[in-house]
Design a binder for these strands. Structure first.
Lengths: 228, 228, 228, 228
DNA sequence: CCATAAGCGAGACGGTACGTCTGGTCTTTCA
DNA sequence: TGAAAGACCAGACGTACCGTCTCGCTTATGG
């Protein structure tokens, strides 16, 4: 957009370093103070920047924190552990680890809370966080289809809807477990959740939600085919 | 609570009507202003009460809102629609309807956000909201077991863990869908979600997540028994 | 006005001590910082008061400083030194001494400057400062008339106009000397100014503006002894 | 000053037009906004100039306004109306007319206020405004002496002191009347002031401060007819 | 005739005060 | 003696201006 003109706009250009420093300072302040006690003056001071600079780039606390938190989730990677079940467990554990960090806990929920009254913020969350991380679901499905664990998709629209659904179920379950129920999403819980997700309520119930058994357990969709 | 003692304490008794008026005023203010712009002064004014009275009964904004929001979820009922799938769909739609109301949206997420830095608030949320609504899961399971849709439970501890897991998955999915992804949890989505929950990823995928097809579709765990 | 109702208004009454503390703090801050660097937060801190309290009572910096400065001039007294000339010299020296204090210098001129764009402030200055100090002129004239140094007045309106004129001439001369010309209004200057005021340009010139001569000099209008 | 060297310094020379535009813009901004709301950015914009250019030539708001205001007083002229009294009345009316202009009102008092804490500014005011206008007093005295209205001066130092005194009395009275007392220095006031200045308090009182009487009145020192 | 040097418009920068608002507490008077 | 009213201290909010700085460009003189 700004590079269309052959020569840069007049005036002193914005400091590129400042942006990174501010986002890092925001996360640091979130860790120490939490959302409600976080002040923009404090963020500015930590970043070695004037409050004005901060307001020049973000409209307020909400927008700033969305960007700061969004970066946290960019480190999520879908590991290739050989089976869909193991892949899911891997990425869910990563997600749980991020949500165990205070800056993610306070920040994410706070901006979601604010977004209930602010469509622009809602859009920003969707763009910066939700849509960006849906790649994990798509990637996981492709890999599972390549392995033959999941059937191919004919209807692209339906496939997209399904990816959305799975994303909400997975992300929602982990968030609710860790933040609302306020219990840890530890390995055992992740294993049982994955089994439920893959097998469904009835089969998972019959399989005993074999979470405590550390013996390797179900290895994916095939785990169910026990009586085939 | 304060009226349990047989003889009232000396002095003017607290107005019983005030509590209800305050909680109602809190919800009304949440609707209009959202969490961050809600002030206790405003709530007090709406309730026709002095700010002092408010602080005499609640420690602060957070506690007040937890109580105001908790009441909203008490109206949830598990309908008896003849099958586990239909029961789930019914209660999930009710839950989605509550989350569509602005006072629930703003209030719930806000107190959850605050609770990330406040153990007492976390406990209050768990007591007033989470544990109180888990009854729905237990009730649903009992009913499904009575119908023969789900097997009986031997291990009480494991059964409790499973109930918790299901609660997090259901509540988490709906919350994430409506508040984070910011998409409506409409009938079609609820149908597809229920199918995923009951059948699991693999089978649901094979069944085509028949959400748009209004043909009644799978009716619970037996829907899967395709090759029995 | 507020005492017309038999019982005071509900709520906590304003602290009487705060007003005095704030005005004193304002003068102290004017001494140290001058008008332009004076901040209301600083005044509040010095007075041991919150900024809110300050804004509850004054609309802004200007109004506050008018009141703080006005008090300074209330200490002016017309000494009885036996002759009109000596009385004038006495009060002018007092006025010069006040204008030598930094809080008076900065404060007075600053609010006058602001008042050029603000009719309300102009009125406040007139009420709090100008009209309040005109008493000195009236008192001096009465005394001089009693002594026979000045003729009695028939026309009350004309007498008032004359008092205004004399006030502007005296106050204006001292202010201009000390603040605009930035020279001290010392005893010698005051003596020469008084002579000019009493004798007028022509006679004073002939009398040689006997300022340096410390011999007691003219003792009033008769000093000119024009018809001796 | 910089043109003393035969060849100008290297580099692009400063725009001569800019200075005039800036001073004019400053006066315009003073008229519209007054001192306290006047911003250098605004002046720069009005003058079609960058803020940098402005700071390259003046140290700050104060210095700029002194220069802008000083120019206003340069238009003062001592008219030759035939008598000292009439000459004084003429120049005082001109001075009052200038002080009736908002840029002069706000600007002059504001820089005087600032100068109370800033010796350099005080010096600048003295040089640019006070000393420059004292010419009027000297000129008036010369003319009066030529006419025989005032005696000649033997002592040059005393004469200078007297000129200073008269300047402070005249300028101070007009400034105080218009800005502090906030009353117009109209023709009637100017006539009465001139009479006071020439005759002194006692004689002027006896002469009745014949301001309202439009009969031509006193025409100078002779008006008193002291030797009749 | 092009290099050097200063001036120029634009606008971001670190600071800082503004005046407002809210949170909680404390002190009155009324019922 | 509790409740309503409202003043109190504390401190964050978002805005505005200050005076400085960095840009890329322009306009002079001077080698």
């Amino acid at each position: 957009m700004q590079s269309r003109t052959p020569h840069a706009r007049a005036g002193r250009p914005r400091s590129a370093a400042a942006d990174a420093a501010i986002l890092a300072a925001t996360r640091a302040a979130l860790v120490e103070l939490g959302w409600s006690k976080l002040t923009l003056q404090d963020v500015a001071t930590r970043a070695g920047v004037a409050k004005t600079t901060l307001y020049r780039r973000w409209a307020g606390k909400n927008e700033l924190v969305v960007d700061a938190v969004a970066e946290l989730f960019d480190e999520l990677r879908l590991p290739d552990r050989g089976s869909l079940a193991a892949d899911i467990e891997g990425v869910v554990l990563q997600f749980a680890a991020i949500l165990a960090r205070p800056e993610a806990r306070s920040g994410l929920m706070a901006v979601v809370a604010e977004s209930t009254r602010d469509a622009a913020l809602r859009e920003r969350i969707r763009t910066s966080i939700v849509d960006r991380q849906k790649r994990l679901v798509l990637q996981g499905r492709e890999r599972a289809q390549a392995r033959g664990e999941l059937p191919g998709e004919d209807d692209a629209a339906a496939a997209a809807r399904t990816a959305d659904l799975i994303f909400d179920v997975v992300a929602g379950a982990v968030v609710h477990r860790t933040l609302v129920s306020a219990e840890p999403a530890d390995e055992e819980w992740v294993r049982r959740f994955t089994q439920l997700l893959l097998l469904g309520l009835g089969d998972a119930a019959r399989a005993g939600f074999a979470g405590t058994a550390g013996q390797g357990g179900p290895d994916g969709t095939d785990a169910r085919g026990r009586d085939g």
